[in-house]
Each structure stands twice: as structure tokens, then as C-alpha cells.
């Protein structure tokens, strides 16, 4: 399927009466790999959620270039997931096939085989029968990546995918992200690690003082730009978009 770029045209989001970011214009071309950076509270996750249609725009518009909702895969921040819930690793991965199984359909042999393959791909095949609360933070993040594999999405949106992970886990999961990119999928990731962004992500959106600076990573992540982004007081509102 051919599709166009995801575009933001003079878009703005307001939360509880306070603008998070405004007049944002830019695009994510098909097959691109873009990091979203900025200080805490700059609205990075809000940008992801706005693209996914979860946050209403106060101004402007977002075009999806012909992509449908089912073409998007989303990895939420691990901290918003209830890890104490009694559910097995396999069931969690199977939920990634929701668009095939729906709320009531059976998870057939093919889907289960894909789930087993996804777990093997992230190195969790031995944990398949365990409950999710028995996993370490790194294993849990691997599990979320396995679930994302199940979605077989064209556009993959990652919200802080490597936060609080050790180096080997980060390298393994980063390799998976590179593999997705090599397959022609569009990658959009909220990240904090500037070294990671510089070495792995050709494009960046730097959110700073309610504005978005969009472009090639080497051109945008200059010391001056970073100082401005991280020293500028962020707008405050009730709630805390990351």
C-alpha cells in the first residue's frame, strides 16, 4: 500500500486552557525515522497522541497521508500500564493482534504462532507462561515490543521506549527499531537520550517553549538550540503531558 506523509499544518494543542504547543507545521515522510525531543512538559507525548487522534487540536490540522487507524502501532510509556494485573505474557502479546481477533474472535493457530515468534524475537520465549508482574523492567519493555511486532504496523510510535533500561536491553530493542526502519516503516519516537538521537535518528522534532523545530538531527541538536529548549520555562497546566 502506498501512503503519503503524516503532516501537521499550523497545529496547536491546548490543555485546560493553556497552550502546550502552537503553530506546529512539519511532516513525517513515509519510511522516515524521527525522534521527538524536548524538556519535561514540552508536550512530546501530547504530539504523539494528537497524531493518533487522542488529543483534540485547538488549531490547525493533522493529515495522515491516506493512513488508516489500523496502520499505526503505539508503544505507551511503561509506567502507565498496570503491571500488577494478573495476565500472562502470552495473553499480553496476543492483545497486539486485536485488529485480527477483535473483542470476541478466537486467537487461532496462526495468531498464536506469530505471538510465539514475536516473543522469540525479543528473547522472551522462556517467559511465555509467566505472569507479567514476574518480569523485570527490561523484560517488560521487551514484552511491549513483542506486542508491537504483532500489530505489524506501517507507522510505529514509541513513547519513551528506552527509559530506565540497561544498555544490553536498549541495544537489543534499538536493533529492532532499526530493523523496522529498514523494512520501510515510519518510526516516530519520544526520546530523552541526545546521544541516542544523534546516532540513530536522522530527523528530530525539538519542542521548545511551545514551538516545534523540525529538521535533520545534526542541524537541529546544536548546543544553542538545546540550551534554549531545556532552559526555557515550559507552560504549566493542570495535568502533566510529558
Amino acid at each position: 500500500m502506498s501512503y503519503g506523509a503524516i503532516g501537521l499544518d499550523d497545529a496547536g494543542v491546548t490543555l485546560h486552557g493553556t497552550p502546550v504547543w502552537q503553530h506546529v507545521t512539519g511532516s513525517f515522510p513515509p519510511g522516515s525515522m524521527t525522534a521527538i525531543a524536548g524538556a519535561n512538559g514540552a508536550g512530546k507525548s501530547t504530539l504523539l497522541r494528537a497524531i493518533l487522534g487522542e488529543v483534540p487540536l485547538a488549531a490547525g490540522r493533522i493529515t495522515l497521508g491516506g493512513l488508516r487507524a489500523q496502520d499505526f502501532g503505539y508503544l505507551p510509556q511503561a509506567r502507565i500500564i498496570d503491571r500488577a494485573f494478573p495476565i500472562s505474557v502470552t495473553d499480553m502479546v496476543l492483545s497486539g493482534a486485536w485488529r485480527q481477533t477483535g473483542a470476541f474472535g478466537a486467537a487461532g493457530r496462526t495468531v498464536r504462532q506469530r505471538a510465539a515468534d514475536a516473543l522469540r524475537r525479543v528473547g522472551l520465549e522462556k517467559q511465555a507462561g509467566r505472569m507479567i508482574d514476574a518480569l523485570s523492567a527490561g523484560q517488560f519493555q521487551r514484552l511491549l515490543f513483542a506486542r508491537l511486532l504483532m500489530t505489524d504496523a506501517t507507522v510505529i510510535m514509541l513513547d519513551e521506549p528506552f527509559t530506565a533500561l540497561d544498555a544490553p536491553t536498549t541495544q537489543d530493542l534499538l536493533a529492532l527499531v532499526r530493523e523496522w526502519h529498514a523494512q520501510g516503516r515510519t518510526i516516530i519516537a519520544v526520546l530523552h537520550d541526545m546521544h541516542q538521537i544523534r546516532t540513530c535518528f536522522p530527523h528530530v522534532v525539538l519542542l521548545s517553549g511551545g514551538q516545534a523545530i523540525w529538521g535533520e538531527t545534526a542541524r537541529i541538536l546544536t548546543p544553542g538550540m538545546l540550551q534554549r529548549a531545556y532552559d526555557t520555562p515550559q507552560p504549566t497546566w493542570a495535568g502533566s503531558p510529558a
Binding site: E54, Q70, D82, I87, R99, A103, F104
Partner: peptide
Amino acid sequence: SFIWRPLVMECVDPGFMRMTGSRGALY
């Protein structure tokens, strides 16, 4: 038993389920 799967998955990760088009408010 009928709404078992969406009910359980909505508990674990409502954000992901919203993204997949699950009708969380209905369940």
C-alpha cells in the same frame, strides 16, 4: 464472559486499547 477480553485488556493498558479502536467507554 461475553465482554471478558476487552474488559481485561482495558484494565491492563487502556492507552493501547484506545489506539486499537476498542470501545473502552462502552465496556
